[in-house]
Amino acid sequence: MLTVNLLGLGLIAVIVWWFWLYKPTLVKGIPDASEVTVIVENGVYQPAHISIKENYPVRINFIRKDESPCAAMLLFPDLDISAELPLNKPFVITLPAMKKGQYPFHCQMKMYTGSLLVE
């Protein structure tokens, strides 16, 4: 019984660490490109974390492969951008030159989340 309880507590600890404490280091750098493609599929943006240069306009091609209407809406709340992504078709979001900082983007319900890191 003790083993089972310890296992349960361990599992809870893993959940807390995995979802909340872990900081993503998966930033995918594309310092020289002016165009990035993000695939929207299976509950995630790929890549979800994009680093771009400061004061450098960038085009992001979103290709939504997920049929669920949840995946369709794309919002950049800080940049006042919102778009409805068509299915299986590239949709270009042109981002202005931006100042340093982190700019999150997500779907309407924040189930899909990603961020732009401007450096």
Partner: peptide
């Protein structure tokens, strides 16, 4: 299948949803 694939993919990305 979409629930399981979606669950796996988001889990790997440290996120979780309905799936």
């Amino acid at each position: 299948k979409h629930f399981y694939v979606g669950a796996y993919k988001s889990l790997v990305n440290h996120s979780a949803n309905m799936d």
